[in-house]
Amino acid sequence: MRQAPASKKPQDRYETALLGLVAYRELSAFERLSSDARFSPTLVDRESLARLAVAEFGHYELVREHIAAKGLDIQETMEPFIESIDALHERTKPGDWYESLIKAYVIDEVSADFYRAISQQLGDEARTLVASVQTSEQQTGWLRERLRLSLCDDPRLASRLALWGRRLLGEALTQARSIGEQYDYWGAADAVAHNDSTQPMTALFAHLVENHSRRMSALGLTA
Rank of each mutant, 00 (worst) to 15 (best):
V133N: 02
I179P: 01
A189F: 15
M78A: 04
I85R: 06
L143D: 00
Q3C: 10
R156H: 09
R32H: 12
A50T: 15
T174V: 09
T42C: 04
S136Q: 05
R144G: 01
A188W: 10
P155Y: 14
T202F: 15
L101W: 06
E15I: 13
L27R: 11
M78Q: 04
A117S: 10
I179F: 11
V110Y: 03
S136F: 13
Q199C: 08
S48D: 05
R148Y: 11
Q121K: 13
A112G: 07
L129G: 01
A218R: 10
Y115R: 05
H207F: 11
M78D: 00
E56N: 04
E61T: 11
Y115T: 01
A55W: 12
E125C: 09
A188C: 09
E83D: 07
E171G: 03
T174Y: 14
D45E: 07
T135W: 11
S28W: 09
R144A: 03
I179L: 09
F205P: 03
A6W: 15
Q182T: 14
A6H: 14
L52T: 09
R144L: 04
F205K: 01
A218S: 08
I67P: 01
R146D: 00
I67F: 12
G123L: 08
L221T: 01
S178H: 12
R13Y: 11
K93W: 12
R64K: 08
K93Y: 10
E47C: 10
R46C: 06
G95V: 08
D153R: 07
E31N: 12
L168W: 03
R167I: 14
A29G: 03
S84G: 03
H66A: 02
D86E: 11
S136Y: 14
A23D: 02
E210L: 05
S119V: 05
E171R: 08
Q139R: 09
H212Q: 04
R127D: 08
V192K: 02
A87L: 10
K70H: 13
Y60G: 01
E171F: 14
E79C: 06
T16N: 06
L208V: 08
R148P: 00
E125K: 14
L62G: 00
D45V: 12
E99S: 03
A189T: 10
T128E: 11
I179K: 03
L204W: 14
G141Q: 06
R148S: 02
I67D: 00
A203N: 01
D154E: 08
A193T: 10
K70Y: 14
A126L: 07
S159P: 04
T128C: 04
S28L: 09
R116P: 05
G123K: 07
Q138Y: 15
L219E: 00
Y105H: 04
A131Q: 11
A189S: 06
Y98C: 02
A17L: 06
A176E: 00
W186G: 00
V110P: 00
A203V: 07
L19V: 08
L33R: 04
L49I: 15
A176K: 03
S40R: 02
E181L: 13
